[in-house]
Design a binder for these strands. Structure first.
Lengths: 143, 143
DNA sequence: GCTTGACCCTGTAACGATTACAGGGTTTAG
DNA sequence: CTAAACCCTGTAATCGTTACAGGGTCAAGC
């Protein structure tokens, strides 16, 4: 059981590329890593946990700014939890809005695809629909 | 009824910013616009229709590369319609996959948010869950 | 005539998160 | 001793859009 890891091993353990880890450090989500005499970054378990935190947040679709806010809250255990709840709830609403929009898009695209009866491009209903604004934009206010 | 429009008027008519129009031209989705003596771009009805095509494709979530392919097909009316169908179908599948992923994310995030009971950050379940990989990653293979 | 504001032009950089280099040094295994 | 695999920094690419900077053109109003 090693107590420190170089960036490559951290990458394999966390599923986070070395480039991303360095990027997080540059952005301030990670504190400057300790360096060996040759300048190699070394990470301990706490750093691994922090990178895992970031990765998990990213896998939930949180942006790095939100994750940074959550990390800042985590670094100050005495602050109120409501701020964290706000960030997560805000993101959840953002997600739900995006899902709704994508579903509307998919429904419209499904309709467009179904209109295709084969044949030549000149008669293709997919292309015709894209040219004709009034058809596909009628159901939801696009543009 | 004018027969040509300057870029600003095209922008208001199509809902596409002048910057984007110039960008589409640089990328080759639009042919080089005719210029006035002073170098101002001028557009006719056909160009307006083409920009509308692009905008509509974008509003459906198509990327500019796919739109360029569709425009190329549209420019060659004798080609087979199947290629257009492929592009649209491929994008639809892409959309559906993204929706499914976002829904899984939202479900997980909803669960995380519900665990928050208020209080101090030190006890916040939102932050704890982000630190703890095993909890939230169990349901779908994240990472 | 002269200024003000609204246009237009080009080229470049920013956004967010990641990836891919180039160009160089270090470690490790054969 | 050498080749592969690793590490470093810094820069540029990706995607589509927006925002500049720095300059030219044209209309209306004084």
């Amino acid at each position: 059981m090693k107590n420190t890891y170089r960036i490559g091993e951290v990458a394999t353990r966390t599923g986070c590329s070395p480039e991303s880890i360095r990027h997080y450090e540059k952005l301030g989500l990670l504190p400057p890593a300790k360096r060996s005499e040759q300048g190699y970054r070394h990470y301990d378990q706490a750093a691994l946990a922090r990178i895992g935190f970031i990765r998990h947040g990213r896998s939930l679709g949180l942006d790095l700014h939100s994750i940074q806010e959550l990390l800042a809250l985590s670094d100050h255990p005495d602050t109120d939890c409501g701020a964290a709840d706000d960030i997560a709830t805000r993101h959840l609403q953002h997600l739900e809005a995006r899902i709704a929009k994508l579903q509307a898009l998919a429904a419209e695209l499904r309709q467009v695809v179904q209109q295709c009866r084969g044949g030549k491009t000149a008669d293709c209903q997919i292309i015709q629909t894209l040219y004709d604004h009034t058809l596909a934009c009628s159901e939801h206010g696009c543009g």
